[in-house]
Deep mutational scan, measured.
Amino acid sequence: VGDQVLEIVPSNEEQIKNLLQLEAQEHLQLDFWKSPTTPGETAHVRVPFVNVQAVKVFLESQGIAYSIMIED
């Protein structure tokens, strides 16, 4: 199991704000291929294997929908 690319769908401005804060966490080494800008629009982010669980827990705790787009 390696890195994953998640497709994330924020449903409101609050969730977009939370994702932008997540993007700013440099220690997570997230690679946003497509940043969140509009509710209902997908964002794509590559998550290093060591941080996959932490990111998924965060998304679930914020009620942000996501799916695994690419499993490496």
Rank of each mutant, 00 (worst) to 15 (best):
F32I: 04
I70H: 11
L30V: 10
V52M: 10
E7W: 10
F58H: 04
I16E: 01
E7F: 09
E7Y: 10
T37I: 09
M69Q: 06
E26F: 15
G40A: 03
L6Y: 05
E41P: 02
V9N: 08
L59P: 00
Q29L: 08
P39F: 04
I16P: 00
N51V: 08
I8T: 01
P39H: 03
Q15V: 02
V1E: 13
Q21I: 12
Q29F: 10
Q53G: 07
K34C: 12
Q21S: 10
L20G: 05
E7S: 14
P10A: 06
V55Q: 00
A54Y: 15
V5E: 05
Q21H: 12
M69A: 06
P48L: 04
Q21T: 10
V55P: 00
E26Q: 12
A54H: 09
V57A: 12
L28M: 08
K34E: 11
P48I: 04
V55F: 13
G63T: 03
M69R: 05
S61G: 07
Q15T: 02
R46A: 07
E14F: 06
N18L: 15
G2M: 11
A54K: 10
E60D: 10
F49I: 12
S35T: 11
Y66N: 01
L59R: 00
E7C: 15
V50L: 12
I68N: 04
K34V: 09
V50K: 12
E60G: 03
H27E: 11
G40P: 01
P48S: 07
A43I: 15
M69N: 04
I8G: 01
E71V: 06
Q4T: 14
F58S: 02
V50C: 13
N12S: 08
L20Q: 11
Q15W: 01
H27Q: 08
S35M: 14
V55G: 00
E71Y: 10
R46C: 12
H44G: 04
V50T: 09
P10S: 02
K56L: 14
S11L: 11
S35W: 12
L30G: 02
D3R: 06
W33A: 09
E71K: 08
D3M: 15
N51G: 04
G63L: 06
L30F: 04
Q25P: 02
G40N: 06
V5Q: 04
Q15Y: 01
Q53V: 09
N18I: 15
Q4V: 15
H44C: 15
G63Q: 07
N18V: 15
V47I: 10
A65V: 09
A43T: 13
I70E: 10
S11W: 08
Q53L: 10
V45L: 15
F32H: 02
Q29G: 13
E60I: 05
E7P: 00
Q53A: 12
K17A: 10
A43S: 09
I68K: 03
E7H: 15
Q4D: 03
L30T: 03
S35A: 12
F32G: 02
N51Y: 13
L20T: 05
L59Y: 01
L19P: 00
P36N: 02
K56T: 09
N18W: 15
L30W: 03
K17G: 06
V45M: 09
M69H: 11
P48Y: 03
K56Q: 06
Q4C: 15
I70C: 15
I70F: 14
T42K: 11
N18R: 11
T37P: 07
Q21G: 08
I64W: 01
P36G: 04
E60H: 06
A43H: 07
V5N: 07
E60A: 05
E14T: 10
N51E: 07
P10R: 01
V9E: 04
H44M: 15
L28I: 07
P10W: 04
T37Y: 06
V55I: 07
V1A: 13
E23Q: 13
H44A: 07
L20S: 05
Q53I: 12
T37S: 12
